Amino acid sequence: MTDESATEEVAWETTATGIDYACPGFDVRRDEVRFPDGTDAEYHYVDEPPAVVILPFTPDGDAVVIEEWRQAVGRVNRGLPAGGMEPEDAGGGSGDAPSLADLRAAAARELAEETGYEAEAFEHLITVEPSNGIANSVHHHFVATGCEPTAEQDLDHNESIRVRTADYDDLLAAVVDGDCRDGRTALAVTQYELTRR
């Protein structure tokens, strides 16, 4: 069986689509779908722009981390700077896939805005769909090196963030031990550890 025929065997057909709820940062989209057996239903999911996640290193090899209040879980979350591409980012909301240069620019902007740090270089680490059962999110992870606090932090009105540096091995241990529960951070650190270190 070819890949194409295997896909046709399980693929859903989208017959209509619309936004049921819109808020800053994401929408809730409703698709009218037809299943392979011919039956019809509605499917709702979170619709949001692509995002960048940055694993930033200082010249001394420490990781730049943030501590941010996360209302959905009701606690301060220790993790990495990250954020959605914005309309002014090329490909950041047009429906077109962003280029690697666009993603690097967004990563540089997010790093500076959330932490006040700027990097000498960005290297693409991995691209993932972190929750494709309930969202169309695509997260592009980058490693940033040579990071120095040379920019002004510029937080959004709904961001409460403290910036810290952490020994990378301590951050890795926190991920391995389950003390760092942020999924984007856990993925970036383990991917870095397995493929770059």
Rank of each mutant, 00 (worst) to 15 (best):
E148C: 07
V128Y: 01
A188C: 08
D177C: 04
V176G: 01
T7C: 13
A72S: 14
P50L: 01
E110H: 06
V46Y: 10
T145G: 13
E110D: 08
C180S: 09
G25Q: 13
T195Q: 15
D154R: 11
W12P: 08
F26V: 06
R196K: 13
D102I: 07
A107P: 09
S94D: 14
A22P: 06
N77K: 10
Y43R: 15
R196E: 09
A51N: 09
Q71R: 02
L125F: 13
T190L: 12
D62C: 11
G92A: 03
D47Y: 10
E4P: 06
P24M: 04
D170I: 09
D154E: 15
P36F: 05
D177E: 11
A119Q: 11
F26A: 14
L172P: 03
I19N: 09
D182A: 02
W12A: 13
Q71F: 05
E159N: 05
A90T: 07
H157F: 12
R78M: 11
A166F: 01
Y192T: 01
T7P: 03
H124P: 07
R197Y: 00
A166W: 02
D179M: 04
E13N: 13
G83K: 00
D177M: 02
I126F: 08
T185D: 00
R196W: 11
G146D: 14
I134M: 12
V163L: 01
A107T: 08
D169P: 04
V65G: 04
T15A: 10
R34Y: 08
A82Q: 07
L55V: 08
D170H: 08
R75Y: 04
T185N: 01
R109S: 13
R104Q: 15
D154H: 12
G91F: 09
A188Y: 04
M85H: 06
E113D: 15
L100R: 15
L171A: 05
P130A: 07
D3G: 14
F57L: 10
Q191D: 12
C147V: 10
P81F: 06
V33Q: 05
V189I: 14
V46M: 14
D169Y: 02
N77H: 05
V76S: 11
E114V: 03
V175H: 03
E120T: 12
G95Y: 10
G38Q: 12
R164A: 02
A188Q: 05
V163E: 00
V128F: 04
L80C: 09
D27G: 04
E9N: 15
Q191F: 06
D20L: 10
A6P: 03
L80E: 00
P149Y: 08
E88T: 06
F142K: 03
D170F: 05
A166G: 01
A186I: 04
V143N: 05
A105S: 14
L55Q: 06
L103D: 02
R164L: 06
T7E: 13
Q191V: 07
E4M: 13
V138A: 09
L155V: 04
L172K: 05
E120G: 10
V65F: 02
E114W: 01
A107K: 01
L111V: 13
H157T: 06
